[in-house]
Simulated scan of single mutants.
Amino acid sequence: MKKIYFTLLLAVFISLKSMAQEKLTWHTDMNKAFELAEKENKTLMLFFTGSDWCGWCIRLQNEVLKTPDFEKWAKDKVVLVELDFPRKTPQDKEIQIQNYQMQKMFNVRGYPTVFFANPEKTAEGKKNLNTLGSTGYVRGGAEKWLEVANNIVKNN
């Protein structure tokens, strides 16, 4: 009986550990995300959000970005970047400045907005983002949202 209990406990532990390892990483530092995307030859997915006040952002998170379908899709295709504009949640000043600069650069006027961009370095070493397209909340859950995202990044 002890062997069965121990084996079952071990199986649960291994399952939980592998599930924890599969979670996606959302970067908040654009420079680090840029370098990672360049190194891994991936597209940047820039998620402009108001995480603690924007209802459509929260819906996009729950219906798409936190689903197994999205996690499976994103794992090999994109480097995830969250550019958050919270109202209640404290945020480092450096991150605030970076996020407002990115908002201005991409001319973001509403939330949620998701841009896809490829990182490029010029011969002089300057960083550029080659924009592929953008989307926001799409009705229909992960399947419909991923259909739109795939159409944007397919030329990568």
Rank of each mutant, 00 (worst) to 15 (best):
F13C: 12
D84L: 03
T25H: 11
M105F: 08
P68V: 10
L132Q: 12
M1N: 13
S18E: 07
A20P: 05
E35Q: 15
E71P: 05
V78N: 11
V78C: 10
E94Q: 13
L65T: 00
F6Y: 13
M19C: 07
Q103S: 11
F106N: 03
N62C: 01
N151M: 05
M30P: 03
W73A: 07
K126W: 01
Q91N: 06
I97W: 11
D29R: 08
E147K: 14
K75L: 12
A20I: 03
E63F: 01
K2N: 15
L65P: 02
A117F: 03
F34C: 09
A37N: 07
M102E: 12
K144F: 04
Y5F: 13
K66V: 00
S15G: 14
P86D: 06
V114S: 02
T43F: 07
G110R: 03
L83P: 05
E120A: 11
V108D: 00
D69V: 04
T49A: 09
L44W: 05
Q21C: 10
G136I: 01
L10E: 03
F47G: 01
A37I: 05
F115T: 02
F106A: 03
K72R: 15
V153W: 07
K39L: 07
L83I: 15
R109Y: 02
K72T: 13
D29K: 09
V148M: 08
R139G: 04
E120N: 11
N31A: 10
F115R: 04
M105G: 01
L80A: 09
T28V: 09
E38D: 12
N62E: 11
L24H: 10
M105Q: 15
A117H: 07
L129Q: 06
K66D: 13
D29A: 10
L80R: 13
L24F: 10
N150Q: 14
N41Y: 04
Q61H: 09
V138D: 02
L44H: 03
N62Y: 01
G141I: 02
M19H: 11
